[in-house]
Write a protein that binds this DNA or RNA. Structure first.
Lengths: 180, 180
DNA sequence: TGACAATGCGACATTTTGCCCCGCTGTTTT
DNA sequence: AAAACAGCGGGGCAAAATGTCGCATTGTCA
């Protein structure tokens, strides 16, 4: 881990408990950590210095972390950008990588996983494919996320498009996605 | 759909039933379709001509579809490459995009979804409106049928694979007038 | 034949859902 | 500016779906 010594990490997440713990773990590993609790705050940080790596939460109070990725990537081509979210979906993962993220991890993830994901830049065609098909619940979650993205996050429109009650969709969205 | 007329599509998937249906649907839309049932076969096709777009399955008998993506991308920067798999996961989605895929879709997906994912860039107002996304129920139904077939009709095994209770799967299978 | 998995189904507790109704916040219309 | 409108989040409640357990029956295979 010595090669991490002194590297600057920007953590963007509006969960104070999460950022506190992660920041501490990263500092213990010798990183220089800055925390931003919103996209706006992150933009301000960017105007003062350019971090070497960044972790970005997707679901935040105000703007989505996705909107921050282009700014981060514009600030530096070398920056390692990791998207980290408790509401992971294939749709947002694809979107994030296309926007220039280096990697994408579902929460919960510990500090070592995060560092590993930040370090693994090169794609590997030989990673193994799941042997299990998706669970129905997971498939539903992915589908909902896709349609939601197509409707720019408009819950009402998505519910209409899916022929599902808005209240039900709202409840489903507030839950964490199922594993696997 | 006229802008699709005559475009060459390469379908890489080792499921004969799937390729047959998809090829037919795509031909009906005016595409020129070639099918490869393995990565090797796809490589051979590539040495003959360069398609405008390709759909690639991940889980195939021999090599994973992921290994094909660099070849496809090397053959042309313009090619639309869609990864399409019943064994979708965030990990492989991220890898696929990093390797140069244009998009990534979990199966089941119908022909229109696939075309959309391959990058319809035309601002066609009608398409958006009448193109309803698949309802969650139908999506679920198709997925269940697929996995059930993979397990030779074994309900218990299917329920395990789908992470769903056997009793629930049983009930779903019994009373299902397949509504859209 | 014995062992074992799979099936169909009843019964019941738990969870999810559909539905109606708020209040609040922006945006568009009048 | 006021009113009308759309979207969001959420409370509460009845109806429906699901998870769970148990049990008798039916393959299947060595």
């Amino acid at each position: 881990m010595t090669e991490l010594e002194g590297k600057r990490l920007l953590i963007v997440d509006d969960d104070p408990a999460f950022t506190r713990i992660l920041a501490r773990a990263m500092k213990r590993r010798g990183l220089e950590v800055t925390v931003a609790h919103s996209v706006e705050e992150a933009e301000r940080v960017l105007s003062t210095f350019i971090p070497d790596m960044a972790t970005v939460d997707l679901k935040m109070e105000t703007a989505s972390g996705l909107t921050l990725i282009p700014s981060l990537r514009a600030a530096s081509n070398e920056m390692k950008i990791l998207v980290l979210t408790g509401y992971a979906s294939i749709t947002t993962a694809v979107e994030a990588i296309k926007l220039g993220a280096t990697n994408y991890l579902p929460k919960p993830a510990d500090a070592d996983e995060i560092l590993a994901a930040l370090g693994k830049t090169q794609p590997d065609p030989d990673i193994e494919v799941n042997q299990q098909p998706m669970s129905v619940n997971r498939l539903e979650w992915e589908h909902i996320q896709k349609v939601l993205a197509e409707h720019d996050g408009n819950v009402s429109a998505t519910a209409r498009a899916l022929g599902m009650h808005r209240r039900t969709l709202q409840r489903k969205l507030s839950k964490r996605p199922v594993k696997q």
